[in-house]
Amino acid sequence: MEKIIQITAGRGPAECTWVVAQVLKKMLDEAQQSGLEATVLQRQAGTENGTVETATIGLKGSGVPDFTASWIGSIQWIGQSQFRKMHKRKNWFIRVFEIERGTAFEMNETDIRYQAMRSSGAGGQHVNKVSSAVRATHLPTGISAVAMDSRSQHQNKKLATERLKQKLESENLRQLQGQVGKEWENQLNVQRGNPVRTFTGTDFKKAKTEKNHKAIRKKMKQNLQSNEYN
């Protein structure tokens, strides 16, 4: 399972970009602890040292759906501004959302057409008589790559395939960057309220929102005993 998520401060002030940087660290640490593969695909620094305006992360692993579900939404930080000591505001919001992947091109052997070509350039009579160069074309996209480095057609085929793979990866990255930019435009206004996670203080500790089930069970037991005596 693979997903791409983005952390953004939107139009928020420097304090929000500081929160993005902290959330990015927390998310990467938590992904590692969960056994997921996390890769920072894009990171845009904020105006202040150590801050991040937006970051895009690629996640891989069987636990990705549950992991992303626990992060997607508004993130709240409660704390004093790191940059404006006299500022009264103590509630800062950023947002985490999923980026829908576009069409990712995969390279399957059945989708590649190979064409033998005559090599050109220096090399003596051999290059004029033997079709040792190879053009590899990815049929679904029309992207192609040529190799004529070796006198061996087999070796050139291998090189052309590797270069084609690199071109497809570059095209996938280009499309992803375009999608990230589109999503960024759509998410400039970060929503506040109903945070999925809340952190506090300069140490950025997660606020405890879990109910104390032990205390609840104890209270229910006391009520039952009281009812038995009544």
Rank of each mutant, 00 (worst) to 15 (best):
T8W: 10
G10F: 10
R11W: 12
R11T: 06
G12C: 09
A14H: 05
E15Y: 02
W18R: 08
Q22E: 05
L24M: 08
M27N: 03
M27D: 02
S34L: 04
A38S: 00
A38C: 04
Q42R: 14
T47N: 14
G50D: 12
G50L: 13
G50W: 14
T54Y: 01
T54H: 03
G58I: 04
G61Y: 02
G61K: 01
G61W: 09
S62Q: 05
S62G: 01
G63I: 00
V64S: 00
D66L: 01
D66I: 01
W71D: 00
I72H: 00
G73M: 13
Q76F: 02
Q76G: 01
Q76I: 06
Q76S: 07
W77M: 06
G79P: 12
G79N: 00
S81R: 03
Q82S: 15
Q82E: 07
M86T: 13
H87D: 15
R89S: 11
K90T: 15
N91H: 15
I94F: 10
F97I: 11
E98T: 14
E100K: 15
E100V: 13
R101D: 07
G102I: 10
A104V: 15
E106N: 14
E106L: 14
E109L: 08
D111I: 08
D111G: 10
Y114I: 01
Q115M: 11
R118A: 12
S119P: 08
A122V: 02
V127G: 10
N128W: 00
K129N: 04
V130Y: 00
S132W: 02
S132N: 05
A133P: 01
R135T: 01
A136D: 09
A136Q: 05
A136H: 02
L139T: 11
P140G: 08
I143C: 03
S144I: 05
S144Y: 13
A145C: 09
V146M: 10
M148T: 11
S150L: 04
Q153K: 05
H154Y: 07
Q155L: 14
N156E: 07
K157E: 01
K158P: 00
A160C: 09
E162I: 13
R163C: 05
R163M: 09
Q166V: 06
E169H: 00
S170F: 10
S170G: 06
N172K: 06
Q175E: 08
V180Y: 02
K182T: 07
K182F: 11
N189P: 07
G193P: 10
P195L: 03
R197M: 08
R197E: 07
T198W: 13
F199Q: 10
T200M: 08
G201V: 11
D203E: 15
F204V: 12
K206A: 09
K206S: 04
A207I: 11
E210D: 14
E210K: 12
I216P: 09
R217I: 13
N223Y: 13
N223E: 07
N230Y: 15
